[in-house]
C-alpha cells in the first residue's frame, strides 16, 4: 500500500505550494521602487522605475496565481488517485 504514502506526500507538496502562493501574494515588491521616480525628477530612471513597479506587481501576482494553480493541480491529482485505484497502481508502480 505504498502509494498511500505517496498520496500523503502529494498533499504535503500541494499544501506547501499553497502556502508559498499565499506568502508571495503578500510581498509588495513593486511598491518599493515607486519611491524612485519622485526622488529623481527629470531623468530616465524615474520612468523606468514606474514601469518596473508595474511589471513586478504583475510578476508577483502571476507567480502567486501559478503556484496556487500548481497546488490545486497536485492536490486534485491526489484526490483522483484515492477514487481510482487502478490509475494509482500504474502511476506509483515504482514504489512497489
Amino acid at each position: 500500500m505504498g502509494y498511500e504514502v505517496e498520496i500523503e506526500a502529494m498533499r504535503a507538496a500541494a499544501k506547501a505550494a499553497g502556502q508559498a502562493a499565499e506568502q508571495a501574494a503578500k510581498v509588495e515588491l513593486g511598491a518599493e521602487v515607486e519611491r524612485i521616480a519622485p526622488a529623481l525628477p527629470g531623468g530616465q530612471a524615474g520612468a523606468a522605475a514606474t514601469a518596473l513597479a508595474t511589471a513586478w506587481e504583475r510578476a508577483v501576482r502571476n507567480w502567486s496565481t501559478e503556484a496556487g494553480n500548481y497546488s490545486t493541480n497536485v492536490s486534485g491529482s491526489a484526490d483522483g488517485y484515492v477514487g481510482a485505484e487502478d490509475d494509482a497502481t500504474a502511476d506509483f508502480g515504482a514504489v512497489r
Binding site: 506526500a9 500504474a90 506509483f92 515504482a94
Partner: peptide, 10 residues
C-alpha cells in the same frame, strides 16, 4: 517542500 514526490510518475 512543494516538490513532486519521487514515487509519482506518469
Amino acid at each position: 517542500a512543494s516538490g513532486v514526490p519521487e514515487g509519482w510518475t506518469g
